[in-house]
């Protein structure tokens, strides 16, 4: 039985000093670990909030979210322990070199072979010769490749990516997107991407459009 995230009639909003801004209302959807999902929509539609709720980072204002791993219902903390993230700003640790960044999640999980595994992944993303380079010595595309590898290196059940190619040119975006989807399919990990890029969205098994508070299957 695949791992799932069930969103049941969730609603969300946020308050400013003068008004309440409604993001979405009564959304339901089940995300499965054996599929890739892209969420597209205009700026301000609430895509990032939906991603945060799905990842268990935020609690929706209304409705509920259920997480299931190996057929067992788990809480948000357990889900997060089995998830990975990819960000628009890459967010590599500036003080660590490429291999240090890649080995970091493994070391945090107490893996003694962290650097060996990291070296394999570095080779896989084509940056073997950049192992000792710090983030500021790498291009944006190279940094994001390392960030992608870092998200997958621990074998999570789900990966959440927020505008992962938003800071990259078209050509680099293509290669990073290819890398992400290849990794997801190879490791059978659920991939949830929030993006403005239709080209990237097309790579996903399912594409959803979030607009005017409604979630619809995109054409």
């Amino acid at each position: 039985m695949p791992d799932t995230i069930e969103l049941n009639s969730i609603s969300h909003h946020f308050d400013t000093l003068s008004e309440r801004i409604e993001l979405f209302h009564g959304l339901s959807y089940t995300i499965r670990a054996d599929e890739t999902l892209a969420i597209i929509g205009p700026s301000g539609a609430g895509k990032s909030s939906l991603l945060s709720i799905a990842a268990g980072l935020e609690i929706p204002a209304d409705g509920d979210v259920r997480f299931t791993i190996d057929g067992v219902a788990v809480d948000a903390l357990t889900m997060r322990a089995n998830s990975g993230f990819i960000f628009q700003q890459f967010h590599l640790m500036p003080e660590l070199d490429a291999i240090g960044n890649l080995a970091l999640p493994l070391r945090l999980k107490g893996n003694r072979h962290a650097f060996d595994i990291a070296a394999t992944w570095l080779d896989k993303v084509g940056l073997k010769d950049r192992a000792r380079h710090r983030p500021h010595q790498l291009s944006g595309g190279e940094q994001q490749r390392i960030a992608v590898a870092r998200a997958f290196v621990t074998g999570p059940r789900f990966i959440f990516a927020d505008e992962p190619t938003g800071n990259l040119d078209v050509h680099t975006s293509e290669s990073v997107a290819a890398l992400m989807f290849d990794c997801a399919r190879e490791t059978r990990c659920g991939l949830v991407i929030v993006t403005h890029s239709h080209a990237m969205a097309k790579r996903a098994d399912t594409v959803l459009l979030l607009d005017s508070g409604q979630l619809k299957a995109a054409a």
Binding site: A81, K109, T154
Partner: peptide
């Protein structure tokens, strides 16, 4: 804060 947020993105529990 930055370091801990990144740790959290790997699924590291906040207590750890």
């Amino acid at each position: 804060r930055y370091r801990l947020a990144i740790y959290a993105s790997f699924g590291t529990r906040s207590r750890t």
